[in-house]
Amino acid sequence: MSDPSVTQDLIHGGEGPAASVVSSSNRPRSLWQDTWDILRHRKIFWISFIMLILFLLMAAFPSLFTHKNPDYATLAKSMDPPSGEAWFGYDLQGRDVFARTIYGARTSIIVGVLATLVTVILGGVAGVLAAYYARWVDSILSRIGEIFLGVPYVLGAIIILGTVAPAQSSPDRVTIMAVVIIVLAVLGWPILMRIARSSVIQAKHQDYVQAARALGAGPFRIIFKHLLPNSLAPILVYSTITIGSYIGAEATLSLLGIGLREPVISWGIAIADHTSYIRTGAHAMLFPAAFLSLCVLTFVMLGEAVRDALDPKLR
């Protein structure tokens, strides 16, 4: 077995030399310290971390990676295959696919991060409230959550986007991005509510929280001082992974023609524009698709690395 943390864990769980083997030699350490210790030694963490930095740089300073203008079109070069002049070739309108793919990172990451942020705020607040006040607050919030979860994701997004911003309309950049972000968050918050709710409920019954209550701490103090820090780890892990899946979802919606659209530059749009040319010029679609997948992979991988480090039992 290559993973030492597992071994330690097995000893802890086993009947044999039990806790005395390990515990007395280690000072008590915080969860985060332990997690960092494990993460530091994980190849997968560093790979995803470096990829994350690359994608963030791409989003912040695309001109570092390409000098070409992503909107400059030379129709004569339409669908030209990859060459030394244009590494990824040209798209249908004769624009440089490499430049457009680089510039697409910004849109995807902005949408992914902001949608996750809204999800965390909506779901986190709902979850903490439901768990803290329990009773009818919990029942009502949980039922509402179930209703939103009852609408399957793609279906819900299609219905909302199809009506708010129908395929035929052409809203401006900011509006359409905001709409997509909100739609993703509105459909995604119940899952985060469940995570926040269950970790807060767990913490709530811990003795130290009961003690804080008995000592007369107010609800705000208890929530912010004791309950929130406890749900932080699972929320952090979930939201990292969610950024990835939202980036994928954004592309999916753009593909269906109801998400982002021109003049926004996005991987999803690039893929959508060239689906009919899969036989003649797959490059215009495959490169953005590869970047999209790598970007999603980065966030999923990072989230999983952190999760495994937080809970080594499951590795």
């Binding site: 030492p4 071994t7 330690q8 000893i11 044999g16 030399p17 083997v21």
Partner: peptide
């Protein structure tokens, strides 16, 4: 023996 990250425990 048990082989752990911290060393070998002679159980």
């Amino acid at each position: 023996e048990f082989h752990t990250r911290q060393g070998v425990a002679k159980a």
